[in-house]
Amino acid sequence: MQETRWAQVWMTTGLLWFLLAIAFAPTNKIYQQGLVAFLWLPTLLLAWPARQRFVELWRGQRLVCLAVMGLGFWAMITLLWTQDPDPSRGAKRALYIIVFLLFFPILANARPERVIRIMQWGGLGLAVTALLAAIEFYGVDGNHWMARLVGLGQLAHPILGGYVLGLAAVWLAHWIPPTRGKQLLWLVALAFLSGFVVLSQSRGAALALLLTFVTMPVWCRDRHSRLIALGALLLAMLAFWLLEPLVLARGTSFRPEILRSSLDMIAQRPWTGLGMGSGYTVFAEGIQFDHAHNLFTHIAIELGLPGLLLWCVLWFAVLREAWRARDTLYGRGILGIWMFSFLAMQFDAASISGTPRAEWFISWLPVGLATVLVWTQAKFQGCDKIPRST
């Protein structure tokens, strides 16, 4: 049933909506409603017909599945002492996450190349948003070119926009089409996306993008990855030379002080945490911050050390699965996505239990995409392999 044309169009629309409507949807409410219609609903309707794919996923990625279930179970337990005035909201969001992760095996249906194609189109769409954002910000609104560029829609923040568009640059750099004409289009898209990251002046996103591109030859081991690494280094030196005053003016942005304050909060409730969905503030140098600016410390504050341990098991299990599939085109793309996300979440991201938002691009999207790695490794009879890239 999931292979019928209407089902594939429906689910393809769901993934593209997740990737693009975050910038194009007029409001966050419309974005969330679109996800319900195009992503959550088809997943629930097709889950039973696609149950064999879930069996294959369980057999091939048991550690990932156990880590997701363990994290979800522990998060539900923490609702017993959460400071969220509406604990049912946390339970609903946990269900959203589970359905989101189940979406990818149904969409792929043992065909990872299908996911690659959709992600490629999504990356091109995000490149268009980068160009439109620059035109609106500098041209229409008349901001000075040294001002921090912000994205469109829900990406109207230099840090969040930098993370989402930087991640799009990463997957486009790994999943390059074979024909010359399309490769030129990809190069232009990469320039728009990378340029947005630089102009957003988000140092966390820029550093994550640079280090991901520089380390690409470790898992890609081909000519195009070495060219990307070299080009990234040269462009980074040029950008630093041009924007050095802007890069250094903000100092460390209180990150060391926020980290110390976050560790103090963890030490106060190390085992239970505050509970899923609890609001909290971090005080550093007399300034109040509304989150820990680091996904790992945020999880420890909210879910305690057990939650942090389960997240680490899940996150590094994804790395293990991607590394095992590094000789495939899909596996290499997931490694790049994992590397960028891991670096980005050290500097600002602090949400795994909220509604779908920009932070999901560097938390749950890599996990969801990684579930498709089962079929790149061809562990089950009749599954398709992704060919090696040249």
Score class of each variant (00 low, 15 high):
T27H: 03
W375T: 05
L131E: 03
I159Q: 09
L184C: 02
W48V: 14
L190F: 00
A7N: 07
V197R: 01
W145E: 09
L79G: 05
W364C: 04
D290I: 14
I135G: 08
A147S: 15
R51Y: 09
G151K: 05
W315M: 01
D222C: 04
L15Q: 02
G161W: 00
P387T: 13
Q381L: 14
L39K: 01
H298Y: 11
F54A: 06
G195W: 02
S253M: 15
F340Y: 04
F289C: 00
L132C: 09
P26C: 04
W338C: 03
A156M: 07
T390V: 15
L165E: 01
F100Q: 00
P366L: 06
L235N: 00
A322Y: 07
L184I: 12
Q83M: 03
I159R: 08
H157G: 08
V128A: 14
A378G: 15
I135L: 15
A23G: 12
K182D: 10
W6A: 15
T13R: 07
V68D: 04
L57G: 02
H157L: 06
L167G: 10
S88C: 06
Q183S: 08
A344N: 01
Q83T: 13
Q381H: 15
R62Q: 12
A300N: 04
V64T: 12
N143W: 08
A67G: 09
H291K: 04
L152Q: 06
R114G: 01
L46C: 01
